[in-house]
Design a protein around this nucleic acid. Structure first.
Lengths: 340, 340
DNA sequence: TTGTAAGCGTTATCAT
DNA sequence: ATGATAACGCTTACAA
């Protein structure tokens, strides 16, 4: 029982394969009558077009490669989901590679994904090896870095400055009278967005002369709630007088909050806590977490829009191929874990 | 500047394209010397094999299609991640389709993904339309339903009975003296795993004669923490005497817990709460949530293993193509939101 | 161990 | 509006 092909449909209808191809692609040039008969036979025979053959012939894979550390992070998962939905409208599919925050893995994945001839590359901006950068640049297709605004972008960017986020949090706390700040972050996080926020934190603490820089790195990314809990006593032992902890993420911040409550440390009276990401938990816990809200869905949609334009699949006039930067807001959202 | 192809590499090395192909596929038949020169030229020229052409020729796409409601659910995301890593070992890649719990969408996605000629289909078992079932069955490739054990599986299964989970929770609570149980679930959830857990709940409540069946459906899947918070007062108003709430998921349970604490309802003294999924939050909150733990990563690995066997990519002797059921444990994990 | 020839199932292109 | 033909870039199958 051979698989049905276009030729089979064509023969049964009494036209050429080309006409079937056109009918299925809404070329609009096929006569309504012929088209109707073709669709009917397609249905009868259960014909499923072979996109691999189509792609080879048309030289368009219909793929967009996406590199992310993992989708175990709801905001990231949401961005990718939104991107997929946006691209779906024009028949583009997503091919995901999980880097696990490992540069070597990223290189290997890139090499593999490139063999699928993606029409574009979307990469969560977490620091890339020179080889990865070269692979992306030389691929000859649009590249979009998301979730950060690197100093020297490869091509397009849809994101915000994580470094500024780190700095802004420090200023925010300083304005509210906090003076002895600490940062709780991740180990082995070179190049990651969390590391960039920590950098912003450190720079701003120095700029504002807020005393010694206090940074505690607890576990490799992504740090878990429980690891964050374990960090709090150590931090308090090391720096008994801190009055605020800036956390690399909301799960991290929630861990700290839980441990503080267990230890009887008042939040925000004795200790302020700031998270990042506006995870669901940050709105629901008590007190709700002060955090930085990112419109994850918008990152996906904007990226999709940008790509549709670049790939000429947008109804809008195709823009010249110039790299673009789309700024996404990072909104510091005061809630219950900082005093006003 | 044309794209380099195999032919170009072959010419430069002074061999035929076929030899290059073999060298790259580790066929082992190419002489070491030739192979070395080929790899060197590949590097020099920056040749990237075109897998689309390769797939068309070999009639193997190297894809596995995955249908999931969304990856915004960490345990699901973890299963898919683990599956991807398992399949990566044999060069298989994953093609994800997000169904958003919409049956119509699932059909459309299936139709689109099938055009990519996947070698297998993995689907999160959330109830499928007859058309979807037909599409899967007639695709002529292995199908794996994960995260549930349907009564009439399409083909292979890697999961556990969600209905049993619902029943087991009821028995667990009854044994601990709880008598007036309620279920907090989702609306428009026909066929979903949550609906199956609710069914198990209802059946067991009836079997044990625990009085009237109390089911409250608050919002479409996936229910959020905040929606769950909003549900608690309504449920207490409707059934002031309930002593336990079984929740469709951990985020849902956490929402209920938060609201109970805000309302001054003692947990577990006045109200027991049970979640599902063993999300990170369930271990970290206070009191920690009694929940049902699923080894999400194992679901992914087992599915990967099963597929590698079925597709004959496993080093192990290829098993005959018979549908298999892999049972995954669903472990009821008593923690702080139920009394012992 | 290496090469030759013939596809794989579409679509681009040029005719009609 | 439809058709014929030649790619698309690789791998299978067989030959040498």
């Amino acid at each position: 029982m051979r698989r049905i092909k276009m030729e089979d449909v064509a023969r049964k209808v009494g036209v050429s394969a080309m006409t079937v191809s056109r009918a299925l692609k809404h070329d609009g040039v096929v006569s309504a009558a012929t088209r109707r008969r073709i669709l009917q036979v397609v249905e009868e025979l259960g014909y499923v077009p072979d996109q691999i053959a189509g792609s080879l012939s048309s030289q368009r894979s219909g793929f967009v490669a996406v590199l992310a550390p993992s989708l175990n992070n709801p905001p990231l998962a949401e961005s990718v989901h939104a991107l997929a939905e946006s691209l779906e409208e024009v028949g583009l599919q997503i091919l995901i590679g999980y880097t696990n925050y490992e540069t070597k893995r990223e290189e290997r994945l890139l090499t593999e994904l490139l063999q699928r001839r993606p029409e574009a590359i979307v990469v969560v901006s977490d620091g890339h090896s020179p080889r990865s950068r070269r692979l992306m640049r030389e691929a000859g297709i649009p590249v979009v870095q998301i979730w950060d605004r690197p100093a020297r972008p490869i091509d397009n960017v849809v994101g915000f400055s994580n470094e500024d986020v780190g700095s802004n949090i420090v200023r925010f706390l300083a304005e509210r009278g906090y003076r002895r700040l600490a940062y709780l972050g991740e180990t082995n996080d070179e190049g990651t967005r969390g590391a960039r926020r920590r950098l912003g934190f450190v720079r701003e603490v120095e700029r504002l002369n807020l005393g010694p820089v206090r940074v505690h790195d607890q576990a490799p990314p992504p740090i878990t709630m429980l690891q964050a809990r374990a960090a709090l006593p150590r931090m308090l032992q090391r720096w008994p007088d801190i009055d605020a902890i800036v956390c690399v993420s909301d799960p991290c911040a929630f861990g700290v909050l839980s441990e503080a409550q267990a230890m009887g440390v008042g939040v925000p009276s004795q200790l302020a806590i700031v998270g990042f990401g506006d995870f669901e938990i940050s709105r629901c816990c008590s007190p709700p977490l002060t955090t930085v809200a990112i419109d994850s869905g918008r990152i996906g949609h904007e990226t999709g829009q940008l790509l549709k334009d670049m790939l000429g699949r947008s109804p809008v006039a195709m823009s010249k191929r110039v790299s673009r930067r789309v700024a996404i807001d990072a909104i510091l959202t005061p809630r219950g874990t900082t005093r006003s």
